[in-house]
């Protein structure tokens, strides 16, 4: 029951033959090797499978692969550019917002969509919590994740570190 779809994955054009019974999660992991996309629950409850479709976060476990035809998909694999982590990724590292890591790619993508949508706006920790309510983390207790998102949104938190060539948070 195969169909050909055309889509963009992390900026690259792809033509894929997908089975209509496959979820996008299965195609991304099994056909394209994008294993940052995790299957936690396969029921839309944990957000570990979050990817961006046309910059909107969705659960790839509940998305038929055929629906991706003509769309643009982003996963964590495409977020760092020229060996430099994205702003959100770097904030997760700097804040220690990662423990076991299984939830992290999903969180990074949900956070990336949130940060892009709210760029330049003042948001409260509670609004960030609501924006990330579709992602579960069993390790961190969320606080470091919320801080990482807050820092990603706030230009003043950053300074440029010439030596390491990357972004670093301004020391408190």
């Amino acid at each position: 029951m195969n169909r050909t779809i055309r889509c963009t994955v992390n900026g690259k054009k792809k033509e894929l033959s997908v089975d209509i019974r496959q979820s996008l999660l299965e195609v991304l992991r099994e056909e394209l090797g994008l294993i940052s996309v995790k299957q936690g629950c396969a029921a839309g409850e944990c957000g570990a499978c979050t990817v961006l479709i046309d910059n909107v976060p969705i659960d790839a476990c509940l998305y038929l692969a055929v629906w991706a035809d003509g769309r643009s998909i982003r996963t964590v694999e495409g977020e760092s550019k020229n060996d430099k982590l994205s702003r959100v990724q770097q904030a997760f590292v700097d804040e220690g917002a990662v423990q076991c890591g299984i939830c992290t790619p999903g969180f990074v993508m949900a956070a990336t969509a949130f940060v892009e949508k709210h760029q330049g706006q003042k948001v409260t920790r509670n609004e960030i919590r609501r924006g990330l309510a579709g992602n579960l983390c069993r390790c961190t207790g969320y606080d470091t994740i919320i801080t990482a998102v807050k820092k990603s949104l706030d230009e003043d938190f950053f300074c440029y570190d010439e030596n390491s060539g990357g972004r670093r948070f301004r020391p408190a």
Binding site: G47, I58, Y63, G131, A133, N135
Partner: peptide, 12 residues
């Protein structure tokens, strides 16, 4: 509506 599921679910 904003009490339903999470953002990913509400987007679909």
């Amino acid at each position: 509506i904003c009490t339903i599921g999470g953002p990913q679910v509400r987007n679909m």
